[in-house]
Design a protein around this nucleic acid. Structure first.
Length: 271
DNA sequence: AAACACCCCTGCGGGC
DNA sequence: TGCCCGCAGGGGTGTT
């Protein structure tokens, strides 16, 4: 489900309910997420939430004592804020119960999501180390893409989906950004010119920002925390449109597999 | 070292 | 109607 925009939309949705609240209880119904949920997560109970932030596709609940609860939604994770008394349904694996009587509830059918506990003063989990820059900040530049790509033989699509290069660009938005920039996803990363990396950098920033504004992309089951779908699906130019006419030139959109992931592009517009 | 393939898991849509 | 197959928004691990 979630790429960076969907995680950010989730963060914006839940943050107002969490900020300033004391964690009254944490209920783990199934510890078997991407990594087993640590028993020591219970150490967060009794502490006040200072802020809810995001790094890459990780949502971070920052406690006033310096501890952090780090959530990842994987492919199918969803966050809702509910009254804590609402009965859980299938795949509701985790509740963070707040003093307000509400709870943050994680539902994740495929269990590719994660909940990590970073104790006060501890180093950040290895998963968060060696992450590249946030795409919507000035740290993410075309110069960086050029510098890191020289000599790279892998497809440019894989390159921009590499979290060490830039975080948060998943399969949907990689396809869309490459279309916007007019770059063939199969092209070797090392053979993309500085000028085209400039276009691609702008396209990544634009597509992610626009998707956040529109509440993310709902393909099947993503919903914003208020239960509404994301509306960015209406703005997709290539993703999921194999065989349909390119919205620019009417050439049929092609699909193929790159890096075990479905890839969509216009053979006319993208070179 | 870089570039791949593979795997974790459940649900759903399409084809028969 | 029902069963089987293929596929899905992520990303860590292990192999060449």
């Amino acid at each position: 489900m979630p790429e960076l925009p969907e995680v950010e939309v989730s963060r914006l949705g839940v943050a107002p309910f969490l900020q300033g609240q004391v964690i009254q209880n944490i209920i783990v119904r199934d510890r078997r997420l991407r990594w087993p949920v640590s028993e020591s997560l219970a150490d967060a109970i009794g502490h006040r939430i200072e802020a809810v932030t995001r790094r890459a596709k990780y949502l971070i609940i920052v406690l006033q004592n310096g501890g952090q609860i780090i959530l990842h939604l994987g492919m199918s994770g969803k966050l809702r804020v509910l009254e804590a008394t609402v009965a859980p349904v299938k795949h509701d694996h985790l509740d963070i119960v707040l003093a307000s009587g509400k709870c943050l509830r994680l539902n994740d059918p495929r269990r590719f999501g994660a909940c990590l506990w970073q104790p006060p003063g501890a180093a950040e989990p290895t998963q968060l180390m060696n992450l590249g820059p946030e795409p919507l900040t000035d740290d993410f530049t075309a110069d960086r893409l050029v510098a890191l790509s020289r000599g790279k033989q892998s497809a440019v699509k894989n390159f921009i989906m590499d979290n060490a290069v830039v975080v948060g660009v998943g399969n949907i938005y990689a396809n869309e950004a490459l279309f916007m920039a007019g770059v063939d996803p199969r092209r070797k990363a090392g053979n993309v010119s500085a000028k085209r990396y400039q276009l691609l950098t702008q396209a990544i920033k634009e597509v992610l920002a626009k998707a956040i504004q529109q509440g993310g992309t709902t393909l099947k089951d993503f919903t914003q925390t208020d239960g509404k779908p994301g509306y960015f699906k209406q703005s997709l130019n290539v993703y999921g449109r194999a065989g349909e006419p390119c919205l620019t030139c009417e050439t049929p959109i092609k699909s193929l597999t790159i890096g075990q992931r479905n890839t969509f592009y216009c053979p006319q517009c993208q070179r």
